[in-house]
Structures are given as C-alpha cells and as structure tokens.
C-alpha cells in the first residue's frame, strides 16, 4: 500500500506548484473567441420640407443627399438624410468595444486631465 509521509506530500505539492503556473499560463494565453455581432445598415429618407420620414434598409447606390423621389404630401424632393449601421443585440453576447473595466475608466480619466489636445483623424 502507498504510504504517504509529510515529505512525500511536500514533493507532490512542489510538483503541483510547478505545474500550476504552466496550466494557468496555457489557459489564459488562449484567445477568447469573440462573438461577431450581426450588423444592419439603415437609410433614412426625409422630405426637404420635413413632413415625411421613412426608414428602410440600405440599398446599394444609396448616399446621403441623394434625391430618391417626391413627397406624397407636398410634392417636394425626398432626400436621403442619413445612413447608419446598427449592431444587432444578441442576449448574452459580448460586444467587442463596449467593455470597460473600472480601472480602465479611472486611468483614462487621468489621461484626459493630462492631455489637452485632441487626436484628430
């Protein structure tokens, strides 16, 4: 029968301690798979006199300022006023950009106080 004494247990513990960082390192170095959230692009069409507004999905060839027809109410031009993309929300899925830890926010606040310049692109 296996007889375990204090020194033997110490030996096993040492081996475990040596292996532990290796296992932790292997687990944490693996890249967490990011969930790619589906996106949808919308086009907002407005009457230039402001009495009609419509939102539809983006179609190839759309651009802001494009005249797409005439208003049913007043006969003025219907113009694409905005095109924007929205990320569809899936319950439980993590977004790539919106996760900020508290320490992150604190450090960025500090940076905001230190820098007076904006990074214009």
């Amino acid at each position: 029968m296996l007889k375990m004494q204090f020194s033997d247990m110490l030996f096993l513990l040492l081996i475990l301690l040596l292996l532990l960082p290796l296992i932790i390192s292997m687990l944490t170095s693996r890249q967490r798979k990011q969930v790619e959230l589906p996106k949808k692009t919308f086009t907002i069409i407005e009457c230039i006199k402001g009495d009609y507004k419509e939102t539809r999905e983006f179609r190839l060839g759309d651009f802001v300022g494009k005249v797409v027809g005439t208003c049913k109410n007043c006969g003025s031009d219907l113009v694409i006023s905005l095109i924007y993309t929205e990320v569809q929300k899936i319950p439980g899925a993590r977004s790539r950009t919106s996760q900020h830890s508290k320490s992150h926010i604190c450090s960025s606040t500090l940076i905001t106080y230190l820098h007076h310049y904006e990074f214009i692109i």
Binding site: H100, S107, S108, F119, I120
Partner: peptide
C-alpha cells in the same frame, strides 16, 4: 472633424476648442 476618443470616452461625444 472626427477625433479619436480616449479609452473610456463615449462614441459620438462632442467637444469644441
């Protein structure tokens, strides 16, 4: 123009100077 936000700032925030 568009400007790069710092980490922790909200997208679409406005600043003038």
């Amino acid at each position: 123009d568009a400007a790069l936000k710092l980490e922790g700032e909200e997208s679409g925030e406005i600043a003038f100077g």
